[in-house]
Structures are given as structure tokens and as C-alpha cells.
């Protein structure tokens, strides 16, 4: 490892993991866009089932969990990598629940519950949100691993220094 890389690693001791944190916040923002868009075209009260309640509650839980994870990854907590990946996977899975079902349901009026345009838009939002979450997780994992190794090296170095001082 050259000096530049060493310094870059050392900087992590004093700087937040902004990349992972910002990616997570972006994922939350994309989810909000999904959330405010999905019920726009409520023809024939298609969404007025128990699903809407579950959807709303899940969105709240998602935002809370993602925000907590964002705070965790900001300060290089490796453990938050896994919830982020899980949240990303759920975002992908959500495509196959409400949007897909609405897109394949024909209403009494003969129209689709969700048109092609809205479906594409929502799928893109969920995929983008998932990509952001997984990317945040991967970046966090890589940075945490590097920081741990760096901290270990510093500890060893200071221990060696103390030992040589003692022997001198």
C-alpha cells in the first residue's frame, strides 16, 4: 500500500462514511417518490383493500429502518451492512406485489389498474432504491473492513512503539 492509500484510509478515522449514508438517504427519497405516486390512479377503488394498510405501514417501517441504517453506516458500523442488503432485496420483491398485481388487473371499466407508464416509473424507482441500498451496503462493508485493518495496524504499531520505549 502506498502513502496516498494509507492517508486515504487514515482519513476514515475522522470523516463520516458519507457515500454510504447519502446513498441510503437517496434510497429513502426514491421510496417516498414511489409511495406518493402509487395511489395516484385509484380507479374503481382498486387499492381500497387491506393491502393499502400493509403498504403504508411497511413504508413507514422502511423509512425508519433505512434512516437508522444510514446513521449506522455513517459512523462505519459494519453490522448495518446486512439490514441494508435485506431492505434492498425487499424493494426488489415489492415490484412483484403491488405494482405487478395492479399492472395485470383489468378494472370493470376495461382499463388497467396501473398503466404501462406508471408501472415502468414505479419499477424504476424501486430498482433504483434497491441499487442504492445494496451499493451503500457494499461500500460500507469495504470501508469498514479497510478501517478495521487500518486500526489494527495502528494499534500494533503503537504497541510496538511502547514496547521499544520500555526496553530502551
Amino acid at each position: 500500500m502506498n502513502e496516498e492509500q494509507m492517508i486515504r484510509r487514515d482519513r476514515m478515522r475522522f470523516k463520516n462514511n458519507k457515500l454510504s449514508a447519502n446513498l441510503t438517504l437517496l434510497a429513502i427519497l426514491l421510496d417516498v417518490l414511489y409511495f406518493v405516486n402509487i395511489y395516484q390512479n385509484d380507479a374503481d377503488h382498486y387499492y381500497h383493500t387491506w393491502m393499502i394498510g400493509v403498504s403504508i405501514v411497511y413504508n413507514l417501517i422502511f423509512m425508519l429502518a433505512a434512516f437508522l441504517a444510514e446513521e449506522g453506516v455513517k459512523s462505519y458500523h459494519k453490522a448495518y451492512t446486512y439490514p441494508l442488503i435485506l431492505l434492498g432485496a425487499i424493494q426488489i420483491a415489492r415490484i412483484f406485489i403491488l405494482p405487478m398485481d395492479a399492472h395485470s388487473t383489468t378494472l370493470d371499466s376495461g382499463a388497467l389498474a396501473m398503466g404501462d407508464g406508471q408501472f415502468t416509473y414505479l419499477v424504476v424507482l424501486l430498482i433504483a432504491s434497491a441499487v442504492c441500498l445494496v451499493a451503500a451496503a457494499v461500500v460500507n462493508f469495504i470501508k469498514c473492513t479497510a478501517l478495521q485493518a487500518h486500526m489494527k495496524m495502528l494499534e500494533e504499531r503503537s504497541a510496538a512503539g511502547a514496547l521499544s520505549q520500555k526496553s530502551a
Partner: peptide
């Protein structure tokens, strides 16, 4: 350069 800043701050 962030690396230069880091060195100076330390």
C-alpha cells in the same frame, strides 16, 4: 487535496 488537508490537520 483531502490527503494534504489530512496531513496538515494531524
Amino acid at each position: 487535496n483531502p490527503n494534504v488537508i489530512h496531513k496538515k490537520v494531524l
